[in-house]
Design a protein around this nucleic acid. Structure first.
Lengths: 203, 203, 203, 203
DNA sequence: AATGAATGAGGCTTCATTCAT
DNA sequence: TATGAATGAAGCCTCATTCAT
């Protein structure tokens, strides 16, 4: 990559990161293009070289940030000795919600804007720098394969779990409503257990 | 109520209803105060006599519309012979998601903006014109009382169900992702069944 | 007309007149809305209450200014004892080109932008404050009626004369090319004479 | 001409031709330098190696295109057996207006921007690749010489005809106002006849 | 000679809010 | 109460021009 191209990427990254920072602190509506470029230290016009408008950045950020979370969760999982579908899923979910509890602006940003379609796409994005082309969704399917039981409607199972976690944790973390996250966790994981059971194939 | 007061209420209602119509068709961001007053047939200044700004109307609308849905669901339930907690809950949920499938703009409007706090408040709002001061949440509690089983953490159970339904149906109805609502329903109701079981007290 | 309405008209007029002044001095391309409102002493938004954009003002100005010129020419004609079609036309043309020679920015503004359609419309606009609904074009037709000869294709005759005058005088006045207006006038009026002859009906 | 020079000329021509295409299709105001270089397939900076700005190209284009038209008209004339001043002039005018009727964007482009000065210059430009240094205006003078009559104020005569044709045809072709070109032609050529008569020297 | 990323001034337009009537 | 003309800050986006490569 030439000096020029590297510089280009630097500017684009600066805009991307600055936008994320401002979106999560001020909110998307109250963040202006002027805010972004000013804080990123580039000229107004430069923004339009790389993005079409504020919502273009927003969509790219959501997909990226949501994907990153799960990828990091999976990486952490690999560092452990945990095996089996349910323990693995619980581990990753736990990792993700803990991350989101630590970074509430990120939670607010992601959960308001995430649709299953976008999410699904993000999960299918190959881990960056990945030598083996792996991605989260493939990892999930592999977990299913390796489990001692068989499962039907695998995408549906993940979908149900994700939407349940997403909705409930949003409320628990941001508003402590109807109760704080740590108090809700046992119930949540119990519900996840039951959802997994639901999709288990029993002869 | 005097003639003048009635006139006042008329204008306020016009603004309220027009705002709802525009919010659901054009989106909140793209709806301006000018749009609202123009279509409502009142002067710009009049808006500020009744609401502080666009977001004031928005919040009031969300609470109202979400509450209305469940209240209507409960009314429909009473017309049937259905009894028992689970059949009743499934009936109401089914009624609500069917309504939302028929009125997608309403779904988009509500689900993007509903938090459990707001929702909880809406459920506690007395049914309008109600002679007996009943509200949805009390109705829910009564269903629990009348069931042959006992349940713990009743609010949590409702919370889990609502968030699961809300997230999954949003995706199924608006994007057909990962599958159309009608195909997902059996799985959803099975999951609800399992959540209810989870909170059942067994000696 | 109420105080408010009068004020409204004042602002609109201020914008209209200021736009004309700036268009003729700086040119349309280099005149900005900001320039106009600033010099007119009103707020930016006020401009958009009365005009859709710069070109809206432009079109209205062209029509108005072109019409005014001919109306004034006709008024001057009435003050004289001149009679007969040709002397009358020559008088009005002479009046108009003299006016345009005195006000070159006006000439530049009008002649670059005038189409016969716009012009025709302007000529049909009733003289303002006119009690009898007269307009230039009707006056022209009346001149034809009163003449001792008859004419065919009356609109065409006027069209030819106007376009000839417009094109040639634009060049003579603004660039002295191919010669100054005063030197060209005899030739021009001779040509007009011949055009009138051309449309005269001879048995 | 070296290979490099040829390459240079190619880029310049590409810019020139592309500018013409865009000016006539989108209009000058709405055509940007970016549009031109992009469609011409060269880099932005390259434009500034050959032209100072958009208006530089514009002026060069107008002069070139207007001149080309008359030169082509004259060439067509030479292919015929037509002789005599008036038939020759009518032939060329007819050729030119027919061309302009076929290519309305060209008409719009030229007639909005043509002044007699620019036009006169264009007519004096030697025919490109011309071995004999001839140009349109000289051809015109020669036609006058060869005619059986003598004429005074020759430039004026051409000027009057050109301006008349230019103004009237602009309106007839682009707007069919006050009538379509083909219906106006007989009147126009009759007027031209009369103008020529006007400048004929009679003892 | 050629490139094209970067610039940033400056245009256009919107719209929440006010306030005199 | 109700009005709606007026405001002007604030946002968006374009684009001619430059300059390091």
């Amino acid at each position: 990559m030439g000096k020029l191209d590297k510089n280009k990427q630097l500017k684009k990254d600066a805009l991307f990161n600055t936008a994320f920072e401002l979106f999560t602190t001020k909110g998307i509506n109250k963040t202006t293009i002027s805010d972004i470029v000013q804080q990123a230290g580039v000229a107004k016009g430069t923004f339009y070289l790389y993005f079409t408008d504020k919502y273009d950045v927003k969509n790219k950020l959501i997909s990226k940030k949501a994907g990153d979370l799960f990828i990091k969760g999976e990486r952490e999982l690999r560092k452990t000795q945990i095996s089996g579908l349910e323990p693995s899923i619980i581990f990753i979910i736990d990792y993700v919600v803990n991350e989101l509890e630590r970074d509430r602006p990120l939670l607010a940003f992601i959960s308001k804007n995430l649709s299953w379609g976008v999410f699904r796409a993000a999960l299918n994005t190959p881990l960056d720098n990945s030598e083996n082309g792996n991605n989260f969704y493939e990892g999930y399917l592999q977990l299913l394969e390796e489990d001692e039981y068989s499962y039907c409607n695998r995408e549906l199972m993940l979908f149900s779990i994700i939407e349940l976690v997403s909705g409930t944790c949003h409320s628990c973390i941001l508003y402590n409503e109807p109760l704080p996250l740590k108090d809700y966790k046992p119930f949540l994981y119990q519900t996840i257990h039951r959802i997994i059971e639901q999709y288990k194939i029993t002869d």
